[in-house]
Every structure is written in structure tokens, then in C-alpha cells.
Amino acid sequence: MLKYIIRRLFMLIPVLIGVSILTFSLIHLIPGDPARSMLGEKATEAQLESLREELGLNDSYIVQYGRFLGDILQGDLGESIQSKEDIAIQLLHKLPATVELTIFAMLLAVVIGVLAGVVAAVKQYSWFDNLSMTGALFGVSLPIFWLGLMMIWLFSVTLNILPPSGRLTAGVELNTITNFYLLDSILTGNWVAFKDAFSHLLMPGLALGTIPMAIIARMTRSSMLEVMRQDYIRTANAKGLKKYLVIFQHALKNASLPVLTVIGLQFGLLLGGAVLTETIFSWPGIGRYVYLAVLGRDYPVVQSTILIVATIFVLINLLTDILYKYFDPRIRYE
């Protein structure tokens, strides 16, 4: 197992180098002069030259890439053109908000998705099966930005029970330790802040979690149906084991492998989906950060954020593969 992990980590290196080349090349794909594109038509030649110098755009492509890679390896992601702030610090500050939202969305998706999938499989062709699978089908077709807006209209505007934006209501105090607000409020025993942070998480979490929830529900159902046909399930039933034990201990355990892969893949995709969700709910994470950078043509921020997200995405996929192998020793990779 350890050998496998080490080999996979080595295989990661060319992919990450490729990711860095692609991210680096983005700025060179800009039609015309990148400096002009960033500073706009009114910029003077002196300003343009200064930016070119600052970004090293006058050097050769290879030299630029070497510097880019060297800086990244030292944790230096450069500074924002607009705010002049250190991008690495900004990302570190904003990442917990995105990770908190993503984990919360995934938790909702897994709990509801797996439960719905299991019940639908156990009660195949029942009204619940039909209803949940129709819901899952609708779920994968929903534009999450529209769902988010409709939620705001229903829960914030019409019913006035959930806050429409942000992470915490103005005036609610919270001493941040990790910048994960739910965790921080538990650590400091601040239940007022916990309740407030939780209510802020609900809508964006649900909006972001809808698509993975639908996919997980469908995958769990089909995987459960496959497993429930196996002989060992029949044996477990025949020997009089309680039904919930058969379902959760025997069937779900064996049906969970394909579901695990889907969860891993979806988790990475949520990081992409966070751009839309964070924009709608004004969630101060890296999704909104990159969106504002795109609008402001702040390319160093766009480059760095995309590089970090892609690296996290690749690592999550690797972790999924490792877990898959761990849980199913029958799988052999050459």
C-alpha cells in the first residue's frame, strides 16, 4: 500500500508541472499586450512598461516560467495588481471560507443522497423510489445559480428566515482561530455565533450540494441494487438477520465503493461550483475572489487561485484513488 502511495505521488509530479505550465500560459494567451489588457486603454506607456517589468513580461518565456515555478515552490504567489496585497496571504485567509462551505455542502449531499439512494433501492419501484429518483434527475439539471437566487427569494425575501449573504451577521462577535466559523464558534463556546454562522451556511450549502446530492443518490441506488442481488445478502436474510443490519452492515458497506469515487470527484468539482455559489451569496471565499479578479483583469490573482484550486483538485482525486484501493484490496494497479 505504501509503495502504491509513493508511486502515485511520483506520478503526480508531471501532472502538477503540466498544471503549472498551463496556468502560467494563461497570461500569454491574452490577445495583444497583457499589460495593456490589465491596465486598460488609458494607461501611459510608462505605466505599461513598469507593469511589464514588475511581471517580468520582457523576459523570455522560459525565464518567465522558471521564475514563476521558483516563486510558487517558495510559497510566493505574487501580489494583486489592484489591491497590491500578497496573494498567498489573501488565499490563506479566504480558503477556510470555501473549504467550510464545500465540506458542509458535501456533508448535506452525502447524508441525504446516500439515505435517499438506500431507501430507493430497498423499496424499488415504490413511490419513494420514483419521487427521489425524479428529484435526483431534476437535481442534476438545475442551474445552481438560479437555485441560489430562488432560495434567496423564498427564504430571505418572502419568508425572512435565512440571511441572504455573507458568513456572519454584522454585530455578531466571533474570535477567529482557524477561520472556519462553525469550528471557531464551537472552540470558543460562542453558541450565538454558531447559530448565526450555521444559518448563513444553509442556503449556499444546499445550493452547492444539490448536484452532488442527486448524483450520489442515483449512484447509491444503482450500486445497492447490484449488491442486493448477491448471494451473501440472500444468506444474511435467510439466516434471519435483522433487515437494517443486512442493509447497512452487509449491503451498504459493499455498495459504498462506487459511491466513494463519486464523492471524491464531486468534492473537487464543488471547488469550481463555488465560484457561482459564492458570487450569489456574497460568500467571502476564493470562488468570489477569483470572480472579482476576472472582472478586474487582475491576472496574477486569477493565475494563482486557479493553480491552487487545481492542485487541491488533483490531490483530492489522488486521495480518492488511495481510499478506493484501501477499501477494496481486490483492486490492483499496475
Binding site: 498551463l22 494563461l26 465560484v275 488533483v314
Partner: peptide, 24 residues
């Protein structure tokens, strides 16, 4: 396939946003 792997290392919507960001 390695090029394809690299393209798949990006969440698709994020890569699309990045491409539009540079293409305009």
C-alpha cells in the same frame, strides 16, 4: 493522454472562467 490528464486537473467551470478571462 498526459495533456488530457492536465486538462482534467482543473474543475471544468473554473477552467472555462480562466479561458474567458484571458480571451475576453
Amino acid at each position: 493522454m498526459r495533456i488530457i490528464d492536465i486538462m482534467m486537473a482543473f474543475p471544468s467551470i473554473l477552467l472555462a472562467i480562466a479561458l474567458v478571462a484571458v480571451l475576453g
